[in-house]
Amino acid sequence: MRRRSVFAAGVLAAVLVIISSPAPAQAADVLRVNGAYSDSPNPGTLVVSVTSTQPVASILAEVVTEDTGAPVAQASDFVLQSQTSDAAFWATSAPLILDALGDYVVHVEVTDVAGNHVRQERAGSLLYRVVTFLDGVTAAPSTVDYDRRQVTVRGTLKGRWPGTGEVRPLAEFPIDINGWDGTPPVSTAPDGSFSSTVTIFGPAPEVTATYYASLDRPYFEQSEPVRIPITIDPRQTRVTAKVDRTRVVAGRSVQVKGQLSWLTSAGWTPYANQASVIYFNLYDDNGCYATYGPTDTDAKGRFVADIVPSQTGYFHVVFSPNDPFNGRFIADSATRTGVVTVLPAGTLR
């Protein structure tokens, strides 16, 4: 009986503990301003990022100057732009219309439906800037060759103002066209137009036009570059070649000689004094090959090479330009010789 009484008392104590234990505490509401920033494509639109466990009831954004903190504008009409598992992004229902371009500080206050309130000083920035862009950019001619490498680039630089979205031409702005090759910038005319003639180089056959942001125009964004590929019509070349014998004992050499020419305005002329441009590929009937060279051309475009062939086959003689700037303006060319038969060593000739 005593043991049963102890057990009953223990059960009763446990029940009392369960009944008298307090309920788990409710998790505290979360309300946090993560940041504020200008949206695109209209920098006059302000976006505020908020993390909250309760629905947001109101947002107030104060736009002030960076240097003095003087008030510039307030915004309280926000619409939900997007949402993730961590935050909601609220954007002003209409772009802000400010009196002057500039980079402004933004303070934000948020209140949720439960009455929780938070104020975040310097929550972010409103970059009230002009978005610049290049319009109607053309390059003519679109094809260049060895003798004619210049291209004229034309277009217009425009700016889209924040807030209103008004588009205006931008005068006296520098436009960089293929600046990497040393071409100086060209200034836009009163109507925003520009024109510049540049020389096309083989390693980069294109024109690129850009307005780069500068310190003297701090509130005009850099434009997206406009790239126009240029086609190169290479100068045609021609290789002739022959071997001095068609049968050779293994270990002996054959002589391959020929001439390299190119097509100029005067017709086919020797392509003279080119270094390391002629290659010799010895092919057999199975498609296997061995490569020899390169070799040079002389003052009359001629070349000669003494080669010990490793197998029976023909020489595929190839010209490949060896000039990083002019190479793409000059076409490759090739020819083949007659078959050279390699006889076993000791075979009488």
Rank of each mutant, 00 (worst) to 15 (best):
A25H: 11
Q26P: 00
A27I: 00
A28C: 05
A28D: 15
D29Q: 14
L31W: 03
L31E: 06
A36K: 06
Y37G: 00
Y37W: 13
Y37K: 09
Y37L: 04
S38F: 13
D39A: 15
D39L: 12
S40K: 13
S40L: 14
P43Q: 14
P43H: 12
P43Y: 11
G44Q: 09
T45H: 01
V47N: 06
V47K: 11
V48K: 03
V48P: 02
S49W: 01
T51P: 02
Q54C: 05
Q54W: 13
Q54I: 07
P55G: 08
P55K: 09
V56I: 12
A57F: 13
I59T: 07
L60R: 04
A61V: 09
V63E: 02
V63T: 01
T65E: 00
G69C: 03
P71H: 03
P71Y: 00
P71D: 02
P71V: 07
V72E: 01
V72G: 04
A73Y: 04
Q74L: 05
V79D: 02
V79H: 01
V79T: 03
Q81Y: 14
Q83R: 15
Q83G: 05
T84L: 14
T84R: 11
A87I: 11
A88F: 03
F89G: 03
F89P: 01
W90V: 06
S93A: 08
S93R: 13
S93K: 09
P95N: 11
L96R: 13
A100M: 02
G102K: 14
D103H: 12
V105S: 05
V106R: 00
V106G: 01
H107Y: 04
V108G: 09
T111V: 15
D112I: 04
V113Q: 08
A114M: 13
G115R: 10
H117Q: 11
H117G: 03
V118S: 01
R119G: 03
R119N: 06
Q120R: 14
E121P: 12
A123E: 08
A123T: 10
S125V: 01
L126N: 05
L127K: 15
Y128R: 08
Y128P: 12
R129I: 00
V130W: 03
V130R: 08
V130F: 07
F133E: 04
L134V: 01
D135E: 15
G136D: 11
V137M: 09
A139E: 09
S142F: 15
